[in-house]
Nucleic acid binder design. Sequence first.
DNA 1: ACGCTGGATGTAATCGATTACAACAATACG
DNA 2: CGTATTGTTGTAATCGATTACATCCAGCGT
Lengths: 353, 353
Amino acid sequence: MADSSDIEAAEGHARTVTIQDVARMAGVSTATVSRALAMPDRVAAATREAVFSAIRETGYTPNAAARSLRAKSTKMVLVLLPGIGNSFFTPVLNALEEVFTEAGYGVLIGYTRQSRRRETHYARVIRAGQVDGVLVVTGNVPRDEEFASVPDTVPKSLMFSEIPGNEHVSVFDVDNRQASAAAVRYLISQGHRRIAHIPGAEGGLEAQERLGGYCDALVEAGLPVDEALIWRGATNFDFASGDRAAAQFFKLSERPTAVFAAADEIALGFMRALKNQGVGIPSDVSVIGFDDTDYAIHYDPALTTMRQPRTEMGRLAAADLLRRMAARNEAVPTSKVRLPCELVVRESVRRLD
Amino acid sequence: MADSSDIEAAEGHARTVTIQDVARMAGVSTATVSRALAMPDRVAAATREAVFSAIRETGYTPNAAARSLRAKSTKMVLVLLPGIGNSFFTPVLNALEEVFTEAGYGVLIGYTRQSRRRETHYARVIRAGQVDGVLVVTGNVPRDEEFASVPDTVPKSLMFSEIPGNEHVSVFDVDNRQASAAAVRYLISQGHRRIAHIPGAEGGLEAQERLGGYCDALVEAGLPVDEALIWRGATNFDFASGDRAAAQFFKLSERPTAVFAAADEIALGFMRALKNQGVGIPSDVSVIGFDDTDYAIHYDPALTTMRQPRTEMGRLAAADLLRRMAARNEAVPTSKVRLPCELVVRESVRRLD
DNA sequence: ACGCTGGATGTAATCGATTACAACAATACG
DNA sequence: CGTATTGTTGTAATCGATTACATCCAGCGT
């Protein structure tokens, strides 16, 4: 041990140790070293020991690039995120990293930031064979064109969104429309009749679906859909959008008794703005959110919200991608999984009598 | 265009296109194709056009593994994070991704989760030459042993923490002790004399330093350091730790008028627990946090806190690592940068008269 | 004793790019 | 007109692993 490091030091500039070095030291061919590592039961016990001992002595680690080149597999996945500062994705990334690392895959992250250049960049990363699979975790699906330029041989999955009619990608999402309707139905069940909605960013599919669910529930209960109660203008699922919505709230002569926000952060921003003006929550206005991010439970009042099973979705999506990456050429069918949301009742909704 | 895709389709299973294919189609050698890409001005204009046209036609993208193998550089960096659900690191990761991607580097993330196995795993990733540089973004520095097994030829940086006496890594942090003292001094300046502290997780260096700063400020003002006012037991920089601290608060007969929490999330958890019991903030108890995470400003009351310049630190650390990765062999000196924190006064601290 | 079988190992091709060096043509210059 | 120079391109070695195929040898059956 001590000697070997001395030798290394004495030799001057430390070259990284290759399989050749190990083979030489163990007195075998490189093929044997490779086999000792990959299929230990196919080399004689004595040889195996010699090889392992040489590996230990040199601190050899197989070069990833060489391995990838030959094996045509990098053991890496690309996770694409929108990249806004939003904490919604933290548990998702956590779950993904957990499952992928456990399976020996590395996680390359990419924030698209709704920028065309960045999408092109990551499309190139995929085409360069730098990853074995791709997981798109975003509402803003990369434009078809770019997505199409990457070969279908690379397994792709989508989370929290849907690309209509693409059979080559797995999809893991929730029924946003249904879940939103359920949230609004809950408000109605608590006696609310005048219910407002703060949609998410205009372009997003989720935002549209949640708005749709809001309308569904109203119509179903025989309540009017009033455009004055739909406070558009959100640029994102963020605090600022909730803040802007509050401005619209205060302009109203006839105020709603309850508000359904398309995301927790919007709800929090909205609540904060109302409280600042002395409006009590839920005493004066009830608020319900969507997502159940980590802050929902710690706010004051704790936010009643529709939970998306983010961690579970992450785990499932990762497992599915692993399965499809493992099956090299054979066509493994993609999955379309829609998980249930769950209403989490806390303190921000008051029952009207 | 249309024809080429038809041909591909007709040829059956689409093999990924290599430099050989491009060379053949353009009627040149692979060397010329490579040159046309890497140094366009060293090939004749006509040839260059032929090559580019062939590249466009085939949709060729150079294989990353082959390039890495030959060039001994992967254009990737490993970012190690503790991996607790904490949102503190979101803007840091954002800044890192931004700078690295802009420079053509990919970001591989690794959550150490304080697990020995994972640290070993990522040490192997580095030794396998899978990344050109490493950025450790965590208070819990990987154990020396593992860190030492990776060659010093791979540039390494540390953020938010320090490894005493390691000249081979760059360090980007803040003076936790000084900043904490400043925070407590502010409380004193507002008339507080009985000030409690909620430290972070026992093991962490930051937690120790912040506790040290707290003591410094007290001593300096001639105030006693009372162990009953140091509410240990935090397991992390999280809500739950603040919640547990609240239990200790309520057990006290003589309560403090102000509390310095070692992190915003701890402060938020603490405030929430107090408010639940009808204790007003800041009317009954003042609270000051540390970090200035995104939620500090949106909480009610908005949290007065000591801001760490997370985004700036991320940018600087990334830029430094890029610089050192660019200088292949030459020994570029490492940086030791200590950025200033800034007191952000909001609503959670009351002036005592 | 001979050939056969199968286990263990070595030889060398291969993955796809980069690049040192060689080869060659065209031009410039004496 | 011959030679030096410059510019352009091709040939082939190289990066470090994996793996198909060849080889060798021991043990076995007849």
